[in-house]
Design a protein around this nucleic acid. Structure first.
Lengths: 348, 348
DNA sequence: TGTGGTCATGAGAGCGCTCTCACAACGGGC
DNA sequence: GCCCGTTGTGAGAGCGCTCTCATGACCACA
């Protein structure tokens, strides 16, 4: 079954076949311009014939680059994403790396022992840079690595400063969602906010406030859920209905919470969107699946992955350059749950 | 900001500090038993003092092992999983690799050009083995790699034979779900099956058939959805209600389809679980979130990752050993949607 | 024809490690 | 006392590559 696998071809062999020196062959492989066209074509031919692929280990050994970057995903991240945000992010990362012939090494530390190992691993220069997926709370890891001179880019707004990061425009997305509701003629737009100790939670609430302050509706109508969960959304909606029975729209800071909110609204006998319009956040597959389909704010996960990777490659190329931050636009996807109320539409 | 990063310590330096030869230092690092205790402690001390971490590139160069494995996730996989099956699988993989000091290189080929590159990359020996996440249809990749002598383990049942793979017990899980419904006193248990050209779809339907054939209910009540989607589930449920208005339970081959089915049941005025009990498959976060909460069959994603990795490491250690297959147990998580019908309970 | 410059090419060192082989020291069997 | 095996250690080759430096060919200009 197992075929005798001959050793992969070496540069030496390529050179021999092409009747040039190893140095010249190396130049061709690495795109050095100063090679005569005869030699170049001969080498290219030899590479094709032998199926030559450079040996990364040997190359790394001398260049002191690993041509790979590490993607670090700390423990509880997968809890956060009920939707495939995560595969999408990775997809974006691989897309950019692919073109750069760089490898993605995935690290998922669980517990502090793993984090130690990770720290040692990274300081040993086994990765040229590090991508840190949204960390929980005030993780010291990015600062740590930065101090060690290892390029880092964080996904999501980190606590500290001086760190390059990419975030989605949570604030702007929330603001757009609320504006959408107001523009549709809703007069009492409430929000169900996520936990305020998470940047995403706080920013989305901020966006709601921005929009309300610019609207005719004077009062803010806020219920804060203690977690981005179904039950959190349900409870917060029940609370809102008790305090503000007359509300006619609600912006919910996550789709899963929105599902909970919709359940509570149904229980209370409100029709969606006729009585109450609902907009969620994330645009998870859930959103399209709900009845009625849920309007939601879409996060550009792939683009986030791409942008993080671009910034990291840049930081690797130019060590010591100033930290940067990039905020990516979100996009409101309007669906049935926030369709304009036919009774109200048209009235001033 | 960027601290001058001194070169990481080399084995040579460790040897010098410990006053032994490089060879002896190497023996200690690699756990060779034949080292005197004096030398051993001296080297260990030196390693600690210098913060020595072996250079993987140099090691790989001579051992011809990469001490890394590739995890390949072909394009459309993320569509399939609305739930975080995928992060959980990777978590399991990293868990095992961690202990083996092996790296995980993630590859997400998109399109055939990427697959070519991937093929070349892997044949160049840049990974000691390959983990293939559930592939779509009859991907030739596993056979390909196997022929090239590269150890492969596939997640999910592949089309061909002679390949080591790990799968969850789709059939058994489905059978348990249906049995659960029958045991709860349901008399007309239907199923909404997934696409039959996917192994998971076919196996889950097989499980339903097994259970029905062992039950008092003679007739199989089957509707086949054309995809594992919300809409597929909704349409199939509507069809079932038309053909078999008297059904009192339904096993749905995925949670997302179950959500669609529940919607259709509601529209038809059926109460859940009083009139119709529902059980899904996947136990995604969705299941717990639904109203009523959805009973579902849980897949051991982490364990799948762990087992795949174990098998791969084994295959790497012993090249040419016989292909193996491992089927992991699924677990029925009973929730409100399949609670025993109070009207029926107790009656013979 | 001599001189300086550019350009293509090759020789060779050396990246950090493992592993084979040689060797010294020692102990026991005859 | 001789030979054998065992055990701990070191010397050194060499993995496949990049990159510096030297070399020789060629051209332009004086």
């Amino acid at each position: 079954m197992t075929k005798a696998m001959p050793h992969p071809a070496t540069l030496e062999q390529v050179a021999a076949v092409a009747r040039v020196s190893r140095a010249t062959a190396s130049r061709v492989v690495n795109g050095d311009q100063r090679v005569g066209s005869d030699a170049r074509t001969a080498v290219e031919e030899a590479i094709k014939v032998l199926g030559y692929v450079p040996n990364r280990a040997a190359r790394s050994l001398v260049t002191r680059r690993s041509d790979s970057i590490a993607v670090v995903i700390p423990e509880p991240t997968d809890q956060l994403f009920g939707d495939p945000f995560f595969p999408r992010l990775l997809r974006g990362v691989t897309e950019v790396l692919e073109a750069r012939e760089t490898q993605l090494v995935l690290l998922m530390p669980q517990g502090s022992r793993d984090e130690d190992r990770l720290s040692r691993y990274l300081s040993a220069g086994h990765a040229d840079g590090v991508l840190l997926a949204s960390l929980h709370g005030d993780d010291p890891l990015p600062q740590d690595l930065q101090l060690r001179g290892i390029p880092v880019v964080v996904g999501g707004r980190p606590r500290g400063s001086g760190i390059t990061y990419v975030d989605v425009d949570n604030r702007g997305g929330a603001e757009a969602a609320v504006r959408h509701l107001v523009d549709a003629g809703r007069r009492r737009v409430a929000t169900i906010a996520g936990p305020q100790d998470m940047p995403a939670g706080a920013d989305r609430l901020g966006g709601y406030r921005d929009a309300i302050s610019r609207s005719a509706q004077g009062r803010e109508l806020i219920a804060e859920a203690d977690s981005f969960s179904f039950e959190g959304g349900r409870a917060a909606m029940a609370e809102l209905l008790r305090d503000v029975p007359g509300l006619d729209a609600v912006f919910v800071a996550s789709d899963l919470m929105a599902l909970g909110a919709v359940t509570a609204l149904r229980t209370a006998g409100r029709r969606i969107p006729d009585d109450v319009a609902v907009v969620g956040f994330d645009d998870s597959p859930l959103a399209e699946s709900m009845e009625p389909s849920l309007s939601s704010v879409r996060q550009p996960a792939e683009e986030m992955g791409r942008e993080m990777t671009r910034l990291l490659m840049e930081a690797i190329r130019r060590p010591g350059s100033a930290p940067r931050r990039v905020i990516l636009d979100t996009q409101l996807v309007a669906r049935a749950s926030s369709a304009a109320d036919p009774n109200v539409e048209g009235s001033p």
